[in-house]
Each structure stands twice: as structure tokens, then as C-alpha cells.
Design a protein around this nucleic acid. Structure first.
Length: 276
DNA sequence: AATTTCTCCTGTATGC
DNA sequence: TGCATACAGGAGAAAT
């Protein structure tokens, strides 16, 4: 599932194909892809990322920039050739077209005025980028002390941007926190802050994770797969032994998501009851 | 208001 | 062998 490391890897790989190119057309087959006609004739001035969203700045002389917002969803990735699951074609005047392939159709593409995220509440309320200086430890510690169950809290994108099911499970294992732990103490939150940065930076360095061989398999336009899958400690490891204590890893469901944890290392701590 | 549940979508795996 | 069903999950809406 494309999370921050996969989206960042995609951004880096498609940037040289798109930057400075002029769009001749955005062809698509879905009513979900809004205002794409407005991109015609514009030049791609920046290829950036916010959380799990790709953002292309679309420039034109004497007008304010537009922005193409693209979310890879569950199965979206780019190809250099059309497929039966091509949902969007980015046609360029002076370069080969890029094909957005998305079998499960969870991806989204919208062209908006730059910074107008009214259609994307998750983007509008998104927390700091985890690998930037904006990810302030003391603020994270404070917010974590007030939060409900830590896994759904992290998945909301509000405390920090870009985490999904894989990297939440990995960061919680590293921190020895149970996914349903509430109201983290300062020590737990500081460790989690560090673990999030550690897991995501390592995953970016290895080009993200690629799971399975089926429809959800994530790859780059040139077929490159992520190398971080081999570094997973819990995700997809049910029944295998914990790397720290050799207890078998367990798969459960938390917040409607498959959740992987070590039942020995990650024990739910009962919060102290405030006396009246 | 915050948290939980439901929905979208389709290829693959499982079960009878 | 073949058909039916369950499953994967990010994000937004709906429900509680």
C-alpha cells in the first residue's frame, strides 16, 4: 500500500520525466478525475509530495498556478505503457506519456487552484512531515498524552503525515507499544517519535515496500520494487518469531485494519486512574 | 466533538 | 474443476 516511502520513491522517479514538460492532455475514463481539462498547455513547474499525496504544480504565463493532486490509493502506480487498468494518461508535448495504472480504482486525481484543498480534508488537516524539522518532538509528546488508541490516531494523518498500515505496525513494534494503547506517557511518545523517523527514513532509503505478487504489488514505472519488505519485523510476519524475544508474531484486527504485533513485547498498559 | 463503522473497488486466495 | 465468498486497506462520509 503506498505510504510515505512509496510515494516519495515514486516522486523521485517520475520527477525527471515530468519536470519542465508541457502537458498536451490529461486523458482519463473516470468522473472522479476532476478539472483535468484545465491542465492542458500548462508546464509542470514542481513535483512535490505531502504525506501520501503527489502534487504537481502547473504553471502558465500571467496566471496563478494550478495544482494536480494525485493519490495513489491502494494499487496506483505509473507505467510507461497503457494497461487494461490505465486510469489517467499524462500526455506531454516533448516527452513520452506517463500512464497511471490503478486496478482497484482507489486512486484520485484532481486539478485545483494551488493550495485549494477543500476537496481533500485529510490534506487540509495533515500533520507535519515526519522527516522534516516541522515534526516537533515536544508537540508530538503533548498531543500523544491526550490521544485515544495510538494506531488509529497515527493513521488519521493528523499527528504526523504519511503513515499507513505497514509503517504504523513497524513503528509500534520498534517502540514496544500496543496498537490500542491510549494516552502515551512522555517516554513512550518520545520513543515513538524517533521510531517513526527511523522506520520511514530507512524505508525511503530502500525505495519502500512491495508486498505479494498480486494486484496490490507496488512498483515504479520501470518495474523496480521496494527493498524495505525484507526489513519488516511484524507486518506480514504472523506466525514468525519476534526478532527480539522469539515469541510468534500475532495478526489481529484494530480499527478495521490487519494489525501485526508481538504479544510479548507489545503489552497494553492500563492507564492510571485519576483520583477525584 | 470525537470515535467508530461503512463504503468504495477488483484481483487473488480460500472453501466447498 | 468450478463457482461463490472472503479478503486486502486509504480516505471520506455516515453513524454513533
Amino acid at each position: 500500500m503506498p505510504e510515505l516511502p512509496e510515494v516519495e520513491t515514486t516522486r523521485r522517479r517520475i520527477e525527471p520525466l515530468l519536470l519542465g514538460q508541457r502537458i498536451s492532455a490529461l486523458r482519463h475514463d473516470s468522473a472522479k478525475y476532476l478539472a483535468t481539462d484545465e491542465a492542458r498547455g500548462r508546464t509542470i513547474g514542481a513535483v512535490s509530495r505531502r504525506g501520501k499525496y503527489l502534487l504537481l504544480r502547473l504553471d502558465a504565463p500571467k496566471t496563478l498556478p494550478l495544482e494536480l493532486i494525485l493519490h495513489l490509493g491502494m494499487t496506483g502506480h505509473f507505467r510507461l505503457e497503457p494497461t487494461p487498468h490505465t486510469r489517467l494518461v499524462i500526455e506531454l508535448e516533448g516527452a513520452p506519456a506517463l500512464y497511471f495504472h490503478d486496478p482497484r480504482r482507489f486512486g484520485k486525481v484532481v486539478v485545483v487552484r494551488q493550495g485549494d484543498y477543500a476537496l481533500f480534508p485529510t490534506l487540509r488537516h495533515m500533520g507535519p512531515e515526519p522527516l522534516s524539522d516541522d515534526f516537533d518532538q515536544s508537540e508530538f509528546v503533548w498531543r500523544a498524552s491526550q490521544a485515544g488508541a495510538v494506531k488509529p490516531w497515527l493513521l488519521s494523518q493528523k499527528p504526523v503525515a504519511g503513515l499507513g498500515n505497514i509503517y504504523v505496525d513497524e513503528a509500534l513494534w520498534l517502540t514496544r507499544l500496543h496498537p490500542q494503547q491510549t494516552r502515551l506517557n512522555a517516554d513512550e511518545a518520545r520513543k515513538l517519535h524517533g521510531a517513526i523517523r527511523e522506520v520511514l527514513s530507512q524505508a525511503v532509503a530502500r525505495g519502500g515496500s512491495s508486498l505479494g505478487s498480486g494486484v496490490g504489488n507496488y512498483r515504479q514505472h520501470d518495474g523496480t520494487q521496494g527493498g524495505y519488505t525484507a526489513e519488516h519485523h511484524v507486518y506480514g510476519k504472523a506466525g514468525q518469531l519476534c526478532g527480539r524475544c522469539a515469541t510468534p508474531i500475532v495478526r489481529t484486527v484494530v480499527a478495521q485494519r490487519g494489525t501485526h504485533l508481538c504479544p510479548e513485547c507489545q503489552v497494553l498498559r492500563v492507564n492510571e486512574v485519576q483520583s477525584i
